[in-house]
Design a protein around this nucleic acid. Structure first.
Lengths: 238, 238
DNA sequence: CGGCCCATTGAGCCAGTTCAAAAAGGGTGG
DNA sequence: CCACCCTTTTTGAACTGGCTCAATGGGCCG
């Protein structure tokens, strides 16, 4: 709950009232082990999920088993805001690490939001940012080299995590395998390992067992063509 | 105007009232030559644009000149529905062929929509579909081979065009260069030419000067892993 | 007819892949 | 605390899809 509140506070003036509205929504807390499904392709979803901890992935499987991860969903992210329309999902969502979710009936959620223009605005921003993240993924995978892609993704994850924890720091604890990174970046896991080594040898990052330490953010950002403007969302009011 | 109405009719029961509401919105019709900008990165946009004819592209340029096209915008498409938030655009939009646009003040547009639940629903669907198209682009460019990517894109364009013209047919008139296709698919233009030749030699398509004729849709769809469910949006009401 | 833009073709190259094997963790049960 | 197993990461070697560079060909317009 903290995570999502931190995020929303970036977009609008969230106060005790809004906190109250959100936390009083009837919900269920559920845990999924790494690899377990959350939403299956074709399923009609009428829930909104908020990730409390762990990382989830949104992905598609091709006929021959190839997998493309569209994006990572981190603590404080919510989906599917589009579920109001009760349409069949065209992709899967599953837990990439152990994940704890808050599950809220879509109708309840939207009724609560509708009544509070401040919350509406904040979730409107959430949707805009989600789309910006998708666009960024297209650019990353379309025109960057392996080293650039990985560096760029590391910076995005760091930035997003720091928004929802509210703490700026230079590390990214990565609870998923290199295979996940590979399927997100359109590369092979072997090449992720090699690129990780290269970024490390060149002094951009330090690779630890729990994740990554960013050693030289500016140099990394420049090399990886990372510009975090797409994650910055000025606070405005209606 | 026909195009957008055709599209919206797929999502909700658009009638004379809605047509009236949309067409009475004060607007300007503008023409852009191929290559001219429509929205520049960093600019704050407070207009909603509807494409009347021609194709536009949404893209990003990297420091060294590499370009990634995020998606093509076809007649009947509208952008930026997100402009209500008055934030700086994180990408460019420009005309890929000669384009005729209808430009509407964002506030007017949203006020008109707000008052009509049927139109609200229809534009809500437009936004959902836009996001689905972005996700599809990620899968295409992330995990498909050149031949598959091109085939897949051809089918998407055909499908989208047939929704807005209201006429199902097996051709795609392509008003943009192979360079545009290359920058959309994350390939080189040379390789687009080769892949086009291959698709043609293998009997999937016929390449004409004005565009492409789809000769064997089913085989092409299977080969290119194309499943048009993401473009289908059941008609529902609130 | 000449110029320009775009598409096509050929040849060589390279980033990233595949396959395979070894090394490093990280539980779990005895 | 050790022994074992299973998953993940790392490394090596050979291969290949798509790239680059460069030349040729076609269409269209003035």
């Amino acid at each position: 709950m903290d995570m999502i509140i931190n995020r929303l506070s970036h977009y609008a003036d969230i106060g005790a009232t809004q906190f109250q509205t959100l936390s009083s929504l009837s919900h269920r807390i559920e845990t999924r082990q790494a690899g377990e499904d959350i939403v299956i392709e074709g399923e009609v979803v009428d829930y909104v999920f908020i990730i409390e901890s762990g990382w989830a992935i949104r992905y598609r499987l091709l006929d021959d088993g190839r997998r493309q991860i569209m994006n990572f969903m981190l603590p404080g992210d919510c989906f599917d805001l589009m579920s109001l329309t009760k349409s069949a999902s065209d992709h899967n969502v599953s837990a990439a690490s152990e994940v704890v979710l808050r599950r809220i009936k879509a109708t309840d959620f939207f009724n609560a939001i509708r009544g509070d223009s401040c919350l509406s605005l904040a979730f409107w921003w959430v949707a805009i940012q989600e789309e910006a993240i998708l666009r960024e993924q297209i650019v990353r995978n379309g025109r960057l080299s392996a080293k650039e892609r990985l560096g760029n993704l590391i910076l995005e994850l760091n930035r997003r995590l720091s928004i929802s924890t509210g703490r700026q720091d230079n590390s990214v604890a990565i609870p998923v395998t290199q295979n996940h990174l590979a399927d997100a970046l359109g590369l092979s896991s072997v090449h992720i390992s090699r690129s990780m080594g290269k970024l490390s040898r060149e002094g951009y990052i330090a690779v630890e067992s729990w994740g990554i330490q960013i050693l030289n953010r500016d140099a990394l950002a420049e090399m990886a063509e990372f510009d975090d403007r797409y994650l910055q969302t000025p606070k405005l009011s209606f």
